[in-house]
Design a binder for these strands. Structure first.
Length: 274
DNA sequence: ATCCAGGCAGATG
DNA sequence: CATCTGCATGGA
């Protein structure tokens, strides 16, 4: 077990974990979170603005939390857009996690037309049923382990009609992984992802952003659509295209600031300052 | 009871 | 290219 410390104005474990990009985490106390990725666990305590990571896999989680990137530059660039000023100020502690690609693919297939609380429960049950038992938690299932599941078993976990998507994609996804892993171009990655059952435009964007860490993308879910729609931007695709053109390579990060602000912060912020 | 949640597949203009 | 419908589940 080893420890790693990190102090930066542009890192908040709470905002990073609760902004909707990841589902396998637990709040232990006001100052302590646990996050799970594949078969690994990391405990994160924050005191006086200093984050302390305790884990058996320090190199993995240093990369996972994207600690080497300067989010100050990104946040500064995005603050220049008037519509982002408040969201950036409130959410600048978010980092885009470098999550495992396969885990991201299955997690976001489950996320479709679902709510975050339920998604977390389903994924937890999926890990308990098919993942390797670790010391005090369960690993995310491998593709091979997922292929052991029947559609009926998956439905019993609460997957509903997504059970068939998981079943199908568990049998096809390996053939696209090599191309996807080396993909540096969003349009190509998107085209490849859309061949899989259960992956449409929005889920593909999330996988591109959280699993491939390509940021020139803009996932449009119901929250983002409600926040961004106007007279002319009246479909998800129009919103998507407009904000990629506007924010460029920062679009994915801008999207996370907005999503988190709209979903978790705005009401609190408005109440606080009356 | 109806609506909503990090939408998608399949069918039809 | 765009638009429309059906879809599992559970909480508000």
């Amino acid at each position: 077990m080893s420890e790693l410390t990190f102090k930066n104005e542009y890192f908040s474990i709470e905002d990073t974990l609760t902004c909707g990009q990841v589902f396998r985490y637990k709040k232990i106390s006001e100052t302590q979170y646990e996050v799970y990725s594949l078969d690994k666990r990391c405990v994160v305590k924050t005191q006086d603005g200093i984050a302390v990571f305790t884990t058996d896999a320090p190199e993995y989680f240093e990369k996972y939390f994207d600690l080497e990137r300067s989010y100050e530059q990104i946040a500064t660039r995005l603050s220049c857009y008037p519509e982002l000023e408040k969201a950036v100020k409130a959410c600048k502690g978010i980092r885009i996690l470098r999550q495992n690609l396969t885990e991201t693919i299955f997690s976001f297939i489950i996320s479709a037309n679902n709510n975050i609380k339920r998604i977390q429960g389903i994924i937890e049950r999926l890990c308990e049923k098919y993942g390797k038992k670790m010391d005090g938690y369960y690993a995310f299932p491998t593709i091979e382990e997922l292929r052991q599941a029947t559609v009926a078993e998956l439905k019993a976990l609460g997957l509903g009609y997504r059970a068939q998507y998981i079943y199908d994609t568990a049998r096809t996804v390996e053939s696209i992984l090599p191309q996807l892993e080396k993909c540096t171009d969003v349009d190509t990655a998107r085209k490849i992802l859309l061949t899989q059952k259960g992956i449409g435009p929005k889920v593909a964007d999330c996988i591109i952003l959280f699993g491939l860490n390509l940021t020139k993308t803009y996932p449009v879910d119901t929250w983002i659509f409600k926040a961004n729609k106007t007279e002319t931007l009246d479909t998800p695709k129009k919103v998507h295209d407009y904000f990629i053109a506007r924010y460029g390579d920062d679009a994915g990060i801008a999207q996370q600031y907005i999503f988190h602000y709209e979903r978790n912060v705005r009401n609190l912020a408005d109440i606080a300052k009356l």
